[in-house]
């Protein structure tokens, strides 16, 4: 029933004709890109906002914005980095609309834990185990400040390079690194605590 987003992703970069379609505002090209990037983008938004309904709204907004701004896309950019950057701007816009000042504010507005699950082709035991593991890491990630959580996800879930992450979050490389170190330090502490 549900598609599942998990690492490692087998998401290949868009073909040149798809990018050409994106620039032309071709809805068929967009539909293919939505199909391909649905999990990654949704997971990014869900982890950033911490709220399924908000993430779904922003997911739609992002693709509409991609359609409207597609003519500005340049080949030298990585599509996923550009896509996440567009989504991130929309998240920030929404936070601003709610009178907040930065992404940190999102931490305070998490009304519900999102539905997390695994594929339908798994046995009940595997499904249960994966769901439990996903919920555990979700809970751990929620304890990180949003900027740290964001870079952790981009680095380890989306497998992005540091410079690509810097492009998405519009921050210097040094800031990206320090957020990663801070986030990993916290995660390590949480997992060490579980081990004890």
């Amino acid at each position: 029933m549900y598609g599942v987003a998990s690492w490692p992703m087998t998401c290949v970069d868009p073909a040149p004709f798809e990018l050409e379609g994106l620039r032309r505002g071709d809805p068929d090209a967009l539909a293919r890109l939505i199909e391909r990037y649905q999990e990654r983008l949704f997971r990014y938004l869900l982890n950033l906002t911490g709220h399924r309904q908000t993430a779904e709204d922003l997911f739609q907004e992002t693709w509409v914005r991609v359609l409207e701004k597609g003519h500005l896309y340049k080949d030298k950019w990585k599509f996923d980095a550009w896509l996440f950057s567009v989504a991130r701007h929309l998240v920030i816009d929404q936070v601003r609309r709610k009178k907040a000042v930065s992404l940190d504010e999102l931490v305070e507005s998490q009304p519900a834990k999102p539905e997390i699950g695994a594929g339908d082709d798994l046995s009940p035991l595997e499904l249960c185990s994966r769901t439990e593991q996903s919920e555990r890491i979700w809970a751990a990630l929620q304890q990180l400040p949003v900027p740290c959580r964001e870079v952790i996800l981009l680095r380890f879930h989306e497998d992005m390079q540091l410079d690509e992450i810097a492009q998405v979050v519009h921050a210097p490389l040094s800031t990206v690194k320090s957020r990663l170190y801070r986030g990993l330090e916290t995660l390590r502490g949480l997992f060490e605590g579980e081990q004890a």
Binding site: M1, Y2, G3, V4, A5, S6, W7, P8, Q38, E39, F42, R43, L46, E56, P114, E115, I116, G117, A118, G119, R130, Q133, S134, R136, I137, W138, A140, L141, I152, L153, F156, H157, L184, L187, R188, L190, F191
Partner: peptide, 14 residues
């Protein structure tokens, strides 16, 4: 922790 982040799964509603 890193492995868990990598294997985390999220449902996407079709």
């Amino acid at each position: 922790a890193v492995l868990s982040v990598r294997s985390m799964s999220v449902r996407v509603d079709p």
